[in-house]
Structure formats: C-alpha cells, structure tokens
Design a protein around this nucleic acid. Sequence first.
DNA 1: GCCAACGTTGGC
DNA 2: GCCAACGTTGGC
Length: 147
Amino acid sequence: MKSEPEEFSIDDLVRQKKTPWFGVRNYQARNFMMKDMKIGDPVFFYHSSCPEPGIAGIAQICSLPYPDATQFDSKSPYYEPAAKKDSPRWFNVDVKLVRKTRLVSLASLRAHPELADMRILARGNRLSITPVEPGEWDFITGSLALP
DNA sequence: GCCAACGTTGGC
DNA sequence: GCCAACGTTGGC
C-alpha cells in the first residue's frame, strides 16, 4: 500500500499504531480493499513520491471495508460531491502497524530478478494498492532480511 | 520541472 | 459506445 510520506509516513503509523487507509479514489484499488483483503493480511507500507521511494515497514489489515469518511467532508481534498451517506462511493480498511523496517528502496527491488513480476514494479503502474505474491513476500522479508 | 502512462470526463 | 481532451501519478 502506497502513501506519500509527506502526507502519512511509516513514522506516523508508528505514532498512531492504527489508521484508516483513507483517500483511495481509484476503483481498482478500492476493489482490492473491498474484495481481496482479509483481516490479518500483511501489507508492505510503501513510500511514494519522495526522495527515497521504497518499502518502509510492514502493517496488517485490521478491519472490514467501511465508507471512507473523507468523501463526505467538503473541506477535505478527498471530498466526493457525488457520494451520499446512503450510497457511499469510496471505502477503506483500517491498517495497523506491525513494524517499521529498514528502507528497501525501489532501486533495490528492481535489482532482484525474483521480483521482476511484482505488480508495483510493472511499467506504468499507478495503482496505490497492488497485490504481492507469497513468493515475493517471502523473498523480500527473507532474502532481503527485513528488518 | 519533465514526461510517460494511465484513468476519467464529456461531447457526439 | 467511441475517443479526444484533460487530469493525475510518480519516478527521475
């Protein structure tokens, strides 16, 4: 799951322990949260659009999907005028900290042929949430010796 | 700041 | 339903 650290970083999650993953405004990413994520699933917390993009920590899904509150907030950058309380458009899950890790940079992810098929590394990928295959997870947490 | 890639919008 | 125009993402 990607986040811009200037908006919400792994250190913010260390302080808060838990956060709603608000602000997802892409249907594919939303559907990953609504259909594929299960409570207890582990996720990589990825820093994007920053000087050192890469995996910065590990978190865990800790709620079912529920309506994203920011879509109803006219002062929020994530405000969605078309969304109504009785027919929300955007949903989020809650995520809790497992641990902060050393930074596994985007460059180092790309350097490993074992990770060549990772969805997040695909050309032109802009999805803020992408699936990680079990083998990719094991390789990153094991061979890259996180943390 | 640039630009490739992709998603969304809206006229027809 | 098509598709051009536009907006956004995100690495560099």
